[in-house]
């Protein structure tokens, strides 16, 4: 295991996983719908980070395609949610 791989496995993954769990707590607790949307947005950003460090650890740059797709989808999702929320008022 190279130093970079060790860092990813023992530092980056745990930190990012805790962050995802914390965001998930907010997703469950709410209390408002915008809170949940923001939590989902954060989770997808964290997922992009996880994919990136995983790509580094496994030496697989192909995985970055996934990160691009995720970034696009999460942006569209957030904008769609906001549009729906504002129309509902």
């Amino acid at each position: 295991m190279t130093p970079v791989q060790g860092l990813v496995v023992f530092v980056a993954f745990p930190l990012l996983t805790i962050a995802v769990i914390l965001a998930f707590v907010r997703l469950v607790r709410g209390p408002s719908l915008p809170d949940r949307v923001v939590a989902l947005d954060l989770i997808s950003t964290l997922m992009i980070g996880i994919i990136a460090v995983y790509a580094i650890a496994t030496d697989e740059p192909v995985l970055l395609d996934l990160a691009i797709v995720l970034a696009l989808i999460s942006f569209l999702g957030t904008v769609a949610f906001a549009h729906y929320l504002e129309r509902r008022v």
Binding site: V4, A12, V20, L22, V25, R26
Partner: peptide, 16 residues
């Protein structure tokens, strides 16, 4: 990686 993951962890802390 250290800086980036630490900042992302702080974001998770902030949202809670």
């Amino acid at each position: 990686i250290l800086v980036g993951t630490f900042l992302m962890f702080v974001a998770g802390l902030g949202i809670t």
